[in-house]
Amino acid sequence: MTADKALPELDPVIHAQARLRVVAALNVLGDGNEMAFPTLKDLLDMTAGNLSVHLTKLEDAGYVRITKTHKGRTPVTYVALTKRGRAAFEDYTKAIRALLDNAGGTS
């Protein structure tokens, strides 16, 4: 079975494991909080390049907000989930739960 048949109507931006993990991690921080890029990188155990690619896709979809600033002289990048991103993650988890239930309640 292909991904499209098994999992219809799932948000393709979030439905990639790497980006799902990014969103799941950022969702733990409540509204009004941002996570520093290196912290997110360590937490997800991804390379900086890989994480950047995924963050760009999430930013293009309007799911994360990326803020570049300076701490003293060192540049720091902060990442936060937007309201839209939070809602998308909620919808996604709801859809997954619904799929599970429809599949005959395997859990």
Partner: peptide, 16 residues
């Protein structure tokens, strides 16, 4: 779907 929920849960726990 089970796998996906597990990934979400694991990431949440690791972040907390």
């Amino acid at each position: 779907p089970e796998e996906i929920l597990r990934v979400i849960q694991e990431q949440r726990v690791a972040t907390v």
